[in-house]
Structure formats: C-alpha cells, structure tokens
C-alpha cells in the first residue's frame, strides 16, 4: 500500500539551530501515528513544515504520491491536510458554522454574480449535518466559540476537518486542557477518523492517550527521529527512555 504522506530527510534550521534534522516519516491510510518527544524535540516544527506554515530547508514531502510544495497553510489544506493546532485555530468571536466555513464561506450570487452574500442557511445546515455524523451534539449551536468548552471547541475543529474531507489529520496536543470526559470524546473522534480511513498524526505529551489510539509511535529527540515502534510492541517506559535520550535507535 502506498503511503498517504511520505516525508523524506526533512531538515529545518532556524539560524544556527537545526530544529528538524533529516527526519523521515510515512503515514498510511487508516493509520494513527503518535509523534512524541520532549519539549523542543522538533515535533511542532516538523508538522508545521508538513502543513505549510514553515518551508523545509532540505528534504522532500510526498502527499498522495505526489511531490508537495506547500508555500502557505491554505495550500496544504486545499490538498487535504487539516491541522488542529494547540491554539485551536478557531475565531472565538464567531459561531460554530462561521468557523467551520472560515476562509471557505459559501456565497449566494445576485445580479449576475456582481453581488455576493453569505449563504448562512446552507452553512448552518451543513454544519449541523457534519456534527450529527460525528455524533457531536450542541445544546447551544448558535453560540460563539468562546462560549463553548474546550472539548466542544476541539469537536468543532475536527468537524471542520471532516466537512472539508481531510485526507490527513494532524492534531497537536488535542487533549490539552480538557476534562477527563472530554478527553475521551476527542479520542473517540480520532477512532472515528481512522474508521473513515483518514490517517491521523497525533502529537501529545500524554502517553496514555497516544497508546490508546495510535498503531505506531515515532519518537523525536533534539530534532532527530530516534525511534519508530508499533504501539502494540512497546510500552510507555521504553518510549520515555527514547524521549529523554537514554535510548537511540540511530546510534
């Protein structure tokens, strides 16, 4: 089977610091890959290179078999890579449907296309529908995002990715700052994405979460990929040793 995403020898430098040092990574359809590492291990830099926030200095990214150049985040999104960031990338002052359609609003045309208005009815209904398919229910659908709980916001971000038919989902610490119940909900959603053959890259400090939903774990340490393990064939003790640099498969 061909990988959905293939990262080859990626390098990203910031001045004298090599944040990502010749990292390779493959992600196959239906997979959930855990990307773990200590702070400043280069995980976030790596995914920002994949999602078009940064441009890699060396190396190649192949997405769905084709060489990918994402100059801006929107290029990656258009190709089908949805990234759910730590800071959520939602506008708190706007509602759920405005956020799901942010940047890709559906418009109605008048006067032969001279005047465009927002098609709120369509966007509201489509948002409700996608939330329903994910089994997410809001008592307060009309509310602004800032009035929602952390878990509800994650659900909106995930629903946005599903609506736009993401081919790859990157999630950066999606369970941070969530209550226990909400953590489970988000992990359930990751499981749902896998069922729909949408591969997920999960970045997390919370190893139990990583073990709960991934089938593969990639460990980074100081910019390098130091280990890649099947989740079923490792344990958190071993992963932690890789994370702190006590173990290193590349040495």
């Amino acid at each position: 089977m061909e990988p959905m995403l293939s990262v080859r020898n990626l390098v990203k430098r910031f001045g004298g610091l090599t944040a990502v040092n010749h990292v390779s990574l493959d992600v196959y359809p239906g997979e959930a890959v855990g990307l773990v590492g200590d702070n400043a291990a280069g995980k976030s830099t790596l995914i920002k290179c994949i999602s078009g926030v940064y441009q890699a200095d060396e190396g190649e990214i192949f997405f769905r078999g084709e060489r990918a150049h994402f100059a801006r985040p929107i290029d990656a999104r258009r190709a089908g890579i949805e990234t759910i960031y730590q800071d959520l990338a939602l506008a708190g002052n706007l509602g759920i449907s405005a956020n799901i359609f942010m940047g890709r609003e559906v418009k109605r045309k008048y006067l032969g296309g001279m005047v465009h208005t927002l098609d709120e009815t369509f966007m509201n209904e489509a948002s409700r529908k996608v939330l329903d398919t994910l089994n997410i229910h809001f008592a307060n659908f009309g509310e602004k995002i800032e009035k929602l709980s952390g878990g509800q916001r994650q659900a909106v971000a995930i629903a946005r990715a599903v609506y736009w038919q993401a081919k790859l989902m990157i999630m950066d610490e999606p369970t941070n700052n969530l209550g226990v119940v909400e953590q489970h909900k988000v992990l359930d959603l990751i499981g749902k994405l896998r069922e729909e053959q949408v591969p997920v890259i999960l970045i997390s400090h919370t190893l139990p979460d990583v073990f709960a939903v991934t089938n593969r774990i990639v460990v980074m340490h100081r910019g390098r990929r130091v280990a890649e393990k099947r989740t079923s064939e490792t344990n958190s003790h071993e992963i932690v040793q890789y994370m702190v640099g006590a173990l290193d498969d590349t040495r």
Binding site: P73, R78, D87, L90, A91, N93, M102, K107
Partner: peptide, 24 residues
C-alpha cells in the same frame, strides 16, 4: 454583515492566526 469580506474582518479581529491558517 452580509458578505464574505465582512465576515473576514471579524475573523481577523477574533483570531488573526486562525484567519491566516484558514487561508484568508
């Protein structure tokens, strides 16, 4: 209040980074 241009004004004011990442 009725157009995409206006919606983007609110999006930028609410979360500039999110607006940027959404391709605005």
């Amino acid at each position: 209040h009725k157009t995409q241009f206006g919606r983007h004004v609110y999006a930028i004011g609410g979360n500039r980074e999110a607006a940027l990442r959404a391709g605005i």
